[in-house]
Computed example of a mutant assay.
Amino acid sequence: MPNQLPRIEIPKDEIEFDFIRASGPGGQNVNKVATAVQLRFNIRKSSFLPEDAKERLIQLAGQKVTDEGILILEAKRYRTQEQNRMDALNRLHALVQQALFSPKHRKPTKPTMTARAARRSAKQHRSQVKRWRRYIPQDWE
């Protein structure tokens, strides 16, 4: 990810948090307190993202995006709600930053004549090495 992109601000009204019970370590606390965070962000209805960035974000997020275009990130790495909330927000920011970066268009090129000649020469040399290793019964009798 390039360093020249500024840190973007996602409008708070476009992000929705649900707190759910996490699995894993935590003792009885895990069964009583909803510390895991489920962040929901509607990509298609987002007001600050350009259309091409929305498409890139949907591609980047993969299966974390529903058919309606809602990105769902679950954060349950930490034992507190606040830490998990910040983790989910940081992951969302990272994904959006990545989506805002437009990849450079690659111009298709062809190998140069010298490169083609070098490739053929290497193939012929390799072929010769294999020919030298070949087993010929007459040579062994």
Rank of each mutant, 00 (worst) to 15 (best):
V37D: 05
V37R: 05
V37L: 04
Q38D: 10
Q38E: 14
Q38S: 13
Q38C: 13
Q38R: 14
L39C: 00
R40D: 01
R40V: 03
R40H: 03
R40G: 03
R40W: 03
R40K: 06
R40T: 05
F41R: 00
F41A: 02
F41C: 00
N42D: 10
N42G: 08
N42Y: 05
I43R: 09
I43C: 09
I43Y: 08
I43E: 06
R44G: 12
R44M: 13
R44T: 13
R44W: 11
R44D: 14
R44K: 13
R44C: 12
R44Q: 12
K45S: 15
K45F: 15
S46I: 05
S47V: 15
S47T: 14
S47H: 14
S47C: 14
S47W: 12
S47L: 15
F48G: 08
F48Y: 08
F48S: 09
F48Q: 08
F48R: 11
L49A: 06
L49K: 07
P50W: 07
P50H: 08
P50R: 07
P50T: 06
E51K: 15
E51H: 13
A53G: 06
A53V: 06
K54C: 05
K54M: 02
K54G: 06
E55F: 10
R56G: 03
L57H: 00
L57I: 01
L57G: 03
L57N: 01
L57A: 03
L57E: 04
I58Y: 05
I58K: 13
I58Q: 09
I58R: 09
Q59N: 14
Q59H: 13
Q59Y: 10
L60T: 05
L60S: 11
L60C: 08
L60E: 07
L60W: 03
L60M: 09
A61I: 02
A61L: 00
A61R: 02
A61M: 01
A61N: 02
G62N: 07
G62W: 04
G62Y: 08
G62H: 05
Q63D: 15
Q63K: 15
Q63C: 12
K64A: 11
K64G: 04
V65I: 14
V65H: 13
V65Q: 11
V65G: 15
V65A: 14
T66I: 05
T66S: 15
T66N: 10
T66Q: 10
D67Y: 10
D67V: 11
D67P: 12
E68D: 13
E68A: 12
E68R: 05
G69K: 00
G69H: 00
G69S: 01
I70N: 01
I70M: 02
I72L: 13
L73T: 02
L73C: 09
L73D: 02
L73S: 05
E74T: 15
E74V: 15
A75E: 03
A75W: 00
A75D: 02
A75H: 02
A75Y: 02
K76P: 05
K76M: 12
R77C: 07
R77T: 13
R79E: 08
R79A: 05
R79S: 04
R79I: 10
R79N: 07
R79H: 06
T80C: 01
T80S: 07
T80E: 02
Q81K: 04
Q81A: 03
Q81D: 02
Q81H: 01
Q81V: 04
E82K: 03
E82A: 01
E82Q: 01
Q83T: 04
Q83C: 08
Q83G: 04
N84S: 04
N84W: 06
N84H: 04
N84F: 05
R85K: 15
R85W: 14
R85S: 14
